[in-house]
Protein backbone atom coordinates (compact mmCIF):
# COMPACT_ATOMS: atom_id res chain seq x y z
CA UNK A 1 0.00 0.00 0.00
CA UNK A 2 1.16 3.49 -0.73
CA UNK A 3 -0.04 6.82 0.56
CA UNK A 4 1.18 10.33 -0.13
CA UNK A 5 0.64 14.01 0.57
CA UNK A 6 1.88 17.21 -1.02
CA UNK A 7 2.23 20.63 0.52
CA UNK A 8 3.21 24.01 -0.85
CA UNK A 9 4.22 26.81 1.51
CA UNK A 10 5.77 30.27 1.16
CA UNK A 11 9.32 30.53 2.51
CA UNK A 12 8.39 32.21 5.79
CA UNK A 13 10.19 31.09 8.92
CA UNK A 14 6.88 30.89 10.79
CA UNK A 15 6.06 27.95 8.48
CA UNK A 16 8.98 25.84 9.78
CA UNK A 17 6.85 24.68 12.71
CA UNK A 18 3.87 24.02 10.45
CA UNK A 19 5.93 21.99 7.95
CA UNK A 20 7.43 19.63 10.54
CA UNK A 21 4.09 19.25 12.35
CA UNK A 22 2.28 18.47 9.08
CA UNK A 23 4.82 15.85 7.97
CA UNK A 24 4.85 14.41 11.50
CA UNK A 25 1.06 14.15 11.54
CA UNK A 26 1.05 12.37 8.17
CA UNK A 27 3.87 10.00 9.19
CA UNK A 28 2.01 9.17 12.42
CA UNK A 29 -0.29 6.77 10.54
CA UNK A 30 2.62 4.32 10.46
CA UNK A 31 3.89 2.28 13.36
CA UNK A 32 6.71 4.68 14.20
CA UNK A 33 7.82 5.34 17.76
CA UNK A 34 8.31 8.69 19.45
CA UNK A 35 12.07 8.82 18.67
CA UNK A 36 11.50 8.11 14.99
CA UNK A 37 8.81 10.79 14.85
CA UNK A 38 11.20 13.29 16.45
CA UNK A 39 13.93 12.32 13.94
CA UNK A 40 11.63 13.03 11.00
CA UNK A 41 10.33 16.31 12.42
CA UNK A 42 13.85 17.56 13.16
CA UNK A 43 15.09 16.62 9.68
CA UNK A 44 12.14 18.34 7.99
CA UNK A 45 12.80 21.43 10.08
CA UNK A 46 16.45 21.46 8.93
CA UNK A 47 15.61 21.09 5.23
CA UNK A 48 12.86 23.73 5.30
CA UNK A 49 15.08 26.14 7.24
CA UNK A 50 17.84 25.63 4.65
CA UNK A 51 15.41 26.50 1.84
CA UNK A 52 14.29 29.65 3.64
CA UNK A 53 17.65 31.06 4.69
CA UNK A 54 20.00 29.69 2.02
CA UNK A 55 17.72 28.86 -0.92
CA UNK A 56 15.61 31.99 -0.88
CA UNK A 57 17.88 34.05 1.39
CA UNK A 58 14.90 35.30 3.36
CA UNK A 59 13.18 36.55 0.19
CA UNK A 60 9.80 35.25 -0.99
CA UNK A 61 9.73 31.85 -2.59
CA UNK A 62 7.83 28.60 -2.54
CA UNK A 63 8.82 25.40 -0.79
CA UNK A 64 7.34 22.11 -2.02
CA UNK A 65 7.03 19.25 0.41
CA UNK A 66 6.05 15.74 -0.48
CA UNK A 67 5.75 12.75 1.80
CA UNK A 68 5.22 9.18 0.62
CA UNK A 69 4.54 6.21 2.84
CA UNK A 70 5.35 2.81 1.39
CA UNK A 71 3.99 0.04 3.55
CA UNK A 72 5.49 -3.40 3.52
CA UNK A 73 7.57 -5.61 5.77
CA UNK A 74 9.54 -2.48 6.47
CA UNK A 75 7.56 0.69 6.12
CA UNK A 76 9.42 3.49 4.32
CA UNK A 77 8.63 7.13 4.92
CA UNK A 78 10.06 9.30 2.13
CA UNK A 79 10.15 13.07 2.45
CA UNK A 80 11.12 15.37 -0.40
CA UNK A 81 11.69 19.07 0.17
CA UNK A 82 12.27 21.18 -2.92
CA UNK A 83 12.93 24.85 -3.53
CA UNK A 84 13.61 26.94 -6.60
CA UNK A 85 16.12 29.15 -4.86
CA UNK A 86 19.83 29.91 -5.13
CA UNK A 87 21.01 26.30 -5.16
CA UNK A 88 24.22 24.97 -3.65
CA UNK A 89 27.46 25.33 -5.63
CA UNK A 90 29.25 22.51 -3.81
CA UNK A 91 26.90 20.01 -2.18
CA UNK A 92 29.71 17.86 -0.80
CA UNK A 93 31.22 20.79 1.05
CA UNK A 94 27.83 22.02 2.27
CA UNK A 95 27.25 18.61 3.82
CA UNK A 96 30.44 18.66 5.88
CA UNK A 97 29.74 18.98 9.61
CA UNK A 98 30.14 22.55 10.88
CA UNK A 99 30.38 24.00 7.37
CA UNK A 100 28.47 27.25 7.26
CA UNK A 101 28.26 30.09 4.77
CA UNK A 102 27.28 32.50 7.55
CA UNK A 103 29.52 32.04 10.61
CA UNK A 104 28.66 35.52 11.90
CA UNK A 105 25.00 34.66 12.11
CA UNK A 106 25.61 31.79 14.54
CA UNK A 107 24.49 29.04 12.24
CA UNK A 108 25.65 25.75 13.67
CA UNK A 109 26.49 24.27 10.26
CA UNK A 110 24.90 21.05 11.47
CA UNK A 111 21.74 20.96 9.35
CA UNK A 112 22.81 18.28 6.87
CA UNK A 113 24.62 16.34 9.60
CA UNK A 114 21.36 16.21 11.56
CA UNK A 115 19.47 14.93 8.50
CA UNK A 116 22.19 12.34 7.83
CA UNK A 117 22.20 11.12 11.42
CA UNK A 118 18.45 11.07 11.99
CA UNK A 119 17.30 9.63 8.65
CA UNK A 120 18.26 6.35 6.96
CA UNK A 121 18.94 7.83 3.54
CA UNK A 122 19.68 11.37 2.37
CA UNK A 123 20.06 12.51 -1.19
CA UNK A 124 20.74 16.14 -2.08
CA UNK A 125 20.49 17.38 -5.65
CA UNK A 126 21.21 21.00 -6.38
CA UNK A 127 21.95 23.31 -9.25
CA UNK A 128 23.21 26.83 -8.78
CA UNK A 129 20.50 29.31 -9.67
CA UNK A 130 17.87 26.59 -10.10
CA UNK A 131 17.21 25.25 -6.62
CA UNK A 132 17.71 22.30 -4.33
CA UNK A 133 15.96 18.98 -3.80
CA UNK A 134 16.47 17.14 -0.52
CA UNK A 135 15.13 13.60 -0.54
CA UNK A 136 15.33 11.61 2.64
CA UNK A 137 13.77 8.47 4.00
CA UNK A 138 13.24 6.67 7.25
CA UNK A 139 12.70 2.92 7.58
CA UNK A 140 10.12 1.95 10.15
CA UNK A 141 10.02 -1.62 11.35
CA UNK A 142 6.80 -2.59 13.06
CA UNK A 143 7.02 -3.36 16.77
CA UNK A 144 6.55 -7.11 16.18
CA UNK A 145 9.21 -7.38 13.51
CA UNK A 146 11.64 -5.23 15.45
CA UNK A 147 11.37 -7.64 18.36
CA UNK A 148 12.27 -10.68 16.21
Amino acid sequence: MQNYMKLEIPSKSVNEAFARAAVGAFAAQTDLNIDELADIKTSVSEAVTNSIIHGYRDADGTIYIECVIKSGKTCIIEVTIRDEGAGIANVERAMEPLFTTAPDEERSGMGFTVMQSFMDTLDVTSEKGRGTIVKMSKYIRSGDEAAL
Partner: peptide, 13 residues
Protein backbone atom coordinates in the same frame (compact mmCIF):
# COMPACT_ATOMS: atom_id res chain seq x y z
CA UNK B 1 9.63 20.01 23.34
CA UNK B 2 11.48 20.47 20.08
CA UNK B 3 14.83 21.82 18.97
CA UNK B 4 16.72 21.72 15.67
CA UNK B 5 20.23 22.83 14.71
CA UNK B 6 19.20 26.47 15.09
CA UNK B 7 19.14 25.73 18.83
CA UNK B 8 22.62 24.22 18.57
CA UNK B 9 23.84 27.43 16.91
CA UNK B 10 22.28 29.42 19.72
CA UNK B 11 23.99 27.30 22.40
CA UNK B 12 27.37 27.29 20.60
CA UNK B 13 27.19 31.07 20.29
Amino acid sequence: DFMDSSGLGLIMG
